[in-house]
Nucleic acid binder design. Structure first.
Lengths: 178, 178
DNA sequence: CTTTACGTTCAAAACGTTTTGAACGCAGGG
DNA sequence: CCCTGCGTTCAAAACGTTTTGAACGTAAAG
């Protein structure tokens, strides 16, 4: 194999490993995904283990994660007993999966906690000493800002997650702030 | 202090700690930020250490990180030798800082690596066996998709980071995809 | 029924990151 | 000058996460 192809493969796999870490996945997940993405043919667990020089066990576990995140899928190769995997090549779909399950849940938890705090503070207002009341008002101000932030995040996530499959990157490039 | 105030304080600090982890900072950073955010008066390192029940050394290091990210600033309290800190309460500013330095750098590195790969593949094209040429074309397709993704990310980041201070969360709520 | 080829599991090990706490440096006050 | 009070530093410890590899389960092939 020509060295340029190897070099490109390696830097892409390394880059996706780096990206994976950056967004909170394990580096191996990113490297597995990259390896699959750059292979026209599906790969078996053994091939992945050999390719990345990691243990079979690690491949097994990380591939399961990739499947759960919708980043890879099993494909059946006729006449083979092995499991074969392909990368989900539709990046937009991958992003929707991740934002939709992981990030949105986080934002919703935050909004619920903040809402509860507001409720609690308003309910307690009567029973507070004057000095405590002042602090409570201060809390409410800070919390209101946090709520704005998370509501913004929620909106942004919904915009991306709720978009149709048809939406491609070119189209999304036209985001505007109005 | 009324228990409702304590409860709100605790859940907010815990939530910000959680958020900090989620976005790749240490949990303590988030908790320190939260503690400062909910205190009308600036706090000293000792007070922070006592409050969060962590060591002085940890407070010192984590507060330096918070300062570097523009999430807290030192304030001078007259007549005091201690260092006092306040949270940067403008969340929008905090977000611009983080997105602008950390995330944008990451995206730019990725785009550079991908660009180099394209250059390398096109330069090598002539010297490749027919079979290798096919693989090179496959790589170029995959890389093109990755580039689209990162260009989208770059655009989105620029939109947020480049926005004026005046831009508040309400305004940003009107993001549209055109 | 036995062998073989595979995937999965999980306890132990390896690893990276964060915290601790003692040692240190420095400045201001006495 | 020497305390004292404070912040910083960094090596060691604690901690959480990921990887390994051997043991195991399973199903197809012989």
């Amino acid at each position: 194999m020509h060295e340029s192809l190897d070099a490109v493969n390696e830097s892409t796999v390394a880059g996706l490993g780096r990206l994976a870490r950056f967004v909170g996945f394990s580096e191996v997940m990113g490297r597995l995904y990259g390896t699959l993405l750059l292979n026209p043919e599906p790969l078996s667990l053994d091939e992945l283990a050999t390719n990345l020089e990691i243990s079979k066990g690690s491949v097994s576990m990380n591939m399961r994660s990739l499947e759960r995140w919708g980043m890879a899928k099993e494909v059946w190769v006729r006449g083979e007993r092995k499991k074969y995997y392909m990368a989900e090549a539709d990046l937009w779909k991958v992003i929707r999966n991740v934002l939709g399950s992981r990030e949105q849940r986080e934002v919703q938890v935050a909004l619920r906690v903040l809402g509860d705090s507001v409720t609690k503070l308003k309910a307690a207002e009567m029973q507070l000493e004057p000095e405590e009341q002042e602090l409570a008002r201060y809390y409410l101000e800070r919390i209101a800002e946090l709520q704005s932030f998370f509501q913004f995040a929620q909106m942004a996530l919904e915009t991306v997650v709720g978009s149709q499959e048809a939406l491609d990157f070119e189209a999304v490039t036209k985001i505007e702030i109005g």
